[in-house]
Each structure stands twice: as structure tokens, then as C-alpha cells.
Design a protein around this nucleic acid. Structure first.
Lengths: 195, 195
DNA sequence: AAATAATATTGATCTACATCAATAATTTTT
DNA sequence: AAAAATTATTGATGTAGATCAATATTATTT
């Protein structure tokens, strides 16, 4: 089995218990896609046909507001999933860009195939349920952080939780993820050094 | 069948296709709970044992930050589900209060029962998957709104989308949901009148 | 190794929103 | 119908973080 498939298998079987043959069946619904740095896999106004699992590399989802500012919605490195979630599940035109931040290898499943897959075996349905539940929980934590923490605290949390991301994404993308300008993040970092 | 069960049935069967007998089975895992205004069904430090569906009434989930300020995480009126999501799915101590904002009737399922239920019939699993997916999508929209919209715009969106909520929850709770102080929301409302 | 493009820093200034304190209005309880 | 409790408004003032513009640094391409 290919190296990236081993990691994918680990990822899946950590969440649901599968026979080897079941995993093979699961895997068969996915196709490999290679993207190069700065390449987009999703763009506004196009319905995103796939959900992507990052085998190697780094991806980022962001939106552009009316003033032309980027706001990072999600980062994804190895073993993370990424897509324009709203657009994907409702099969509506995307509002996000999903871009390769590094050359990346993805495992992709189409929306149609995903429906088939879930119908095939209740365990597969369970897998997607668990993923969705955890995503909700994660998003809710993000809402809570935004409501209750200062910019500095949000940055510290980011460093604590996503230390692996910090060095792989430009600083301005992290600023846009925690909800500050790149200038302000720069100043916060300077202040920390002075202390 | 009781009136509230009819609404519950509609809610479920809108998402998955069930025989009457299957719905009866589903319903059997739930118990009815009546709560009076200002009563808490979840408090910080206690593991929330249940997920609740509001048959009648109005509930609100909020957290208290270090300065003692309330931040509303979720509103729920008829046909909405509510719980401390993170705490419930991971069965950890809650960080939220979930409080009755009006006298309410709830249909509750315990975490244990929910596990049983999902194992019983793949359709039930599908139901929870769909719910979780939509919750993720909803939460993500909220993250995006917070990143891209001004306080006024967030308030307008709230009015547009949750007009039914507006008159059933105190204004300060709406302020805390969109992420402003009650004073500032009051001022925004005044400015709108002047225009 | 230059040239170019992308990213990060710094300074000056501005503003959206918070804080604090008082009062007014509304709802609930007795 | 008062009294008490809860919620909403208003004014004065403060500040976290934004904006704009310039420059410095780092990474990428030729």
C-alpha cells in the first residue's frame, strides 16, 4: 500500500473499526490529486465537487470580503480535511477559495461518490457523522474564543494548538484566521519579545 | 399522538425517511422534560447527560467569561436542538449554562441512549450525521460573519434570519450573541431609527 | 546572483466599539 | 397596585485594534 494510503487508513480506522477489505472499498471511492503551490481547488461561484483529505502538503481556505481583505477560514496540513463546507454539503456555489499553500497530494471524494459510500455501509455513514460532529464542536470553540478572548489570547491559543501550522503558513494568514490585521499581529509579536 | 410529538415527527422525517414504526422506536429513546423559566438544564463543571429538542418554549446557551460577562452561544425555540455541544459529544464537564428563557417542554435523549439509537438503524445514524453536518455549516457561517461583517451588519443579519427569536429573547442576549455590548446594540438601534 | 514578488515591520493617525455610571423603562412578583 | 427585579437607554470617556503609507526583510523566479 502506498505511504499516503497508510496514513489515510490510520486516520479512518482511528474513528471507525474496519476490516482491511472494507477499507479497500472505502479507499476505492477516492482519487489522488496533486496540486502545486498557489493552485486553487475551489473558487467562488463554482460548486465544489469534492471534499479533500491532505496526504502531504498544506492547504488554506479563505474568503475575500467586500474591501478585498482575505479571511482565513481553515488551514489544513497532513491528515486534515478541507473544502468549502457550506458549498460542498449543500452543493451550492462556493464563496471560498481553497488554495494550495505548498505542493500537495490530496485524496478526493466527489459529493456523488460520498453519497454512495455512505449508503454502502453504516460504518462509513458513522465515519462522516463523527467527522461532522467534531467539526461542529471545533467551530463552536472558535466562535467561543472569538467572543471571549482578546487578540493576544487568541494568538496564544493558536500557537498552543497549531504549533505545526505556524511555520507553514504566512503570518498574515494567521492574522486573518484569528481575526486581526497583519500589522496588528506584527505589533503583538514585537510586544511579546519586549517582555 | 401528542401535539409535540407530531412536530418532532415532522422534524425527523423531513431529514430521513421513516416508517411509522421506526419513528415510534426512535421516539421511545426520548423522554419529556418540563422546565420553568430561568431553570438550568446544564451548568459548568457538570457533564451534560442529554441533548434536548425544544417542543415548546425558548432556551439559551451561554458562557460566562473571566470578567463575568455573558456570551450567548445558541438560542433555541420550537424545533431547535440545544446542548453544550463540546461537552455533550465528548462527555466532558460543561463550560456553558443552558437555561430556559421561557417555560419549556423538551424532548431529551441521553448520551448513552443516543449511542444505542444510532447503532439500531443506519437511518438513525444518518439523521445525526445530517444534523451534525448542518451544525458545522451553520457554525462556519457564524465564524465567517464575525470575520467579515461589522456589528451593524451582524445585527441586520440576525434580524433577517432569526426574526422569530428577536421578540422572545432579551436584547442584551442578542447583543452577546452577535458580539457587542448591550449598550452598543442600544445605540445602533437608535441610529437606525434616526435614519 | 540579480531581479522580482511576496511577506513582515514600523510609525502616525483614526475609529468602532468598550467601559463605567446613572437613569429610565419594562416585566415580574408580592 | 406597589414593590422589586430585570432590562434598556443615555452620556462621558477610554482603548483595542484598524487604516494608510512607507520601508525592510525574506522567498522565489529568471
Amino acid at each position: 500500500m502506498l505511504e499516503e494510503h497508510t496514513l489515510f487508513k490510520k486516520h479512518i480506522t482511528k474513528r471507525i473499526d474496519l476490516e482491511d477489505s472494507e477499507f479497500e472499498q472505502f479507499l476505492n471511492f477516492f482519487s489522488t490529486k496533486i496540486v502545486t503551490k498557489r493552485q486553487f481547488i475551489t473558487q467562488p461561484d463554482f460548486v465544489p465537487s469534492h471534499r479533500s483529505f491532505v496526504c502531504t502538503g498544506a492547504m488554506r481556505a479563505y474568503i475575500l470580503d467586500d474591501s478585498g481583505n482575505e479571511h482565513t477560514i481553515q488551514f489544513a496540513i497532513e491528515n486534515w480535511w478541507i473544502t468549502d463546507y457550506n458549498a460542498y454539503i449543500y452543493q451550492r456555489p462556493a464563496t471560498m477559495f481553497v488554495m494550495a499553500q505548498e505542493n500537495s497530494t490530496l485524496l478526493q471524494i466527489s459529493h456523488e461518490k460520498e453519497l454512495e459510500l455512505k449508503a454502502l455501509n453504516p460504518k462509513f455513514e458513522t465515519f462522516f457523522r463523527i467527522m461532522a460532529e467534531r467539526s461542529t464542536a471545533y467551530m463552536q470553540r472558535r466562535v467561543i474564543e472569538r467572543l471571549t478572548l482578546s487578540a493576544e489570547e487568541r494568538y496564544q491559543h493558536f500557537l498552543d494548538k497549531y504549533s505545526l501550522m505556524v511555520n507553514r503558513f504566512p503570518q498574515y494568514t494567521i492574522a486573518s484566521y484569528i481575526g486581526v490585521t497583519t500589522e496588528f499581529l506584527s505589533r503583538m509579536r514585537k510586544n511579546r519579545l519586549l517582555k
